[in-house]
Amino acid sequence: MDGVHDMGGMHGMGPIDAEENEPVFHGEWEKRMFAMNNAASALGVRNIDESRHARERMNPGAYLSSSYYEIWLDGLVRTLSEKGLISEEELAGVVAPKPVTTPKPAIRAEDVDKAMDKGATYTVPEGKPAGFIVGQTVRAKNIHPAGHTRLPRYARGHEGIVCRDYGIHVFPDANAHGADDPQHLYNVKFSSVELWGEDGTKGDYVYIDLWDDHLERA
């Protein structure tokens, strides 16, 4: 979706103020938010692409004025509400939380470190045949889907060169909506001049990971 979250190449957002010696978390509530989001994933109630799409649908004004973990909080509440796992009354504290059934049992405290170290993999053994080869010139499709997409606006309609084929992966644009459409994932090299014209810098390049359905033959 063409939301405020897709800020690559946009102007007028002000400088990025890097915080010197920035801590991992700025407060205990941020630690809890990190844990709650990962716990929700461990329960199997949503996948990573659903969580991203939930954050993308945040009110634009609120998104721009919120901190990183405030955006995570908004997305988590939206996901749990849409899945029927929490109600407006429970959120408001009007009624006590009710027990719910989830696809997987809650992760045990002693298993958290192991699970975090293991991480997750999104490679799959089978999917669409590769549509492109390394060294081929391709064009990012000029599309504007209403749902989730990993194709950034600034790259759409521009040509690049396939530098690497990572093999078959889960397709986020489908996975965010409960669909299964595994396909090849590529690393594509775009020149900054191709992306931004005379405002680009000759010799500078942007490398973007894109899937088959994001690309077309140039």
Score class of each variant (00 low, 15 high):
Tyr63Asp: 12
Asn142Ala: 14
Tyr207Lys: 05
Gly9Phe: 08
Lys83Ser: 07
Ala174Arg: 02
Tyr186Asn: 00
Met7Asn: 13
Asp165Gly: 01
Gly157Val: 10
Thr101Ser: 15
Arg52Ser: 12
Phe190Ile: 03
Leu91Gly: 07
Gly119Asp: 14
Ala106Gly: 06
Gly44Met: 05
Ser192Cys: 08
Glu70Leu: 02
Asp204Gly: 02
Tyr186Asp: 00
Ala120His: 15
Leu64Trp: 07
Gln183Leu: 01
Val95Gly: 05
His144Gly: 04
Glu50Lys: 08
Ala35Thr: 11
Gly44Lys: 05
Pro129Lys: 10
Lys189Ile: 00
Asp111Val: 09
Glu89Asp: 14
Pro172Val: 06
Pro182Glu: 02
Ser66Met: 09
Gly75Tyr: 02
Pro97Glu: 10
Lys114Gln: 15
Ser191His: 03
Gln183Pro: 01
Tyr63Ile: 09
Glu20Arg: 14
Ile143Leu: 09
Leu210Asn: 03
Ser65Gln: 15
Ala109Val: 12
Gly84Arg: 11
Asp199Glu: 11
Ile161Leu: 07
Tyr69Glu: 07
Pro105Lys: 09
Val124Thr: 05
Gly147Pro: 01
Ile143Tyr: 08
Thr149Asp: 09
Asp173Trp: 00
Tyr186Val: 00
Ile107Thr: 14
Asp199Lys: 11
Glu82Cys: 11
Leu151Tyr: 03
Val100Ala: 13
Ser87Ile: 03
Asp213Gln: 10
Gly200Met: 04
Leu76Pro: 00
His11Leu: 14
His184Val: 01
His26Val: 04
Gly147Val: 02
Ala62Thr: 11
Pro97His: 13
Glu216Ala: 05
Asp49Val: 01
Pro60His: 08
Asp17Arg: 15
Gly178Cys: 06
Lys98Phe: 06
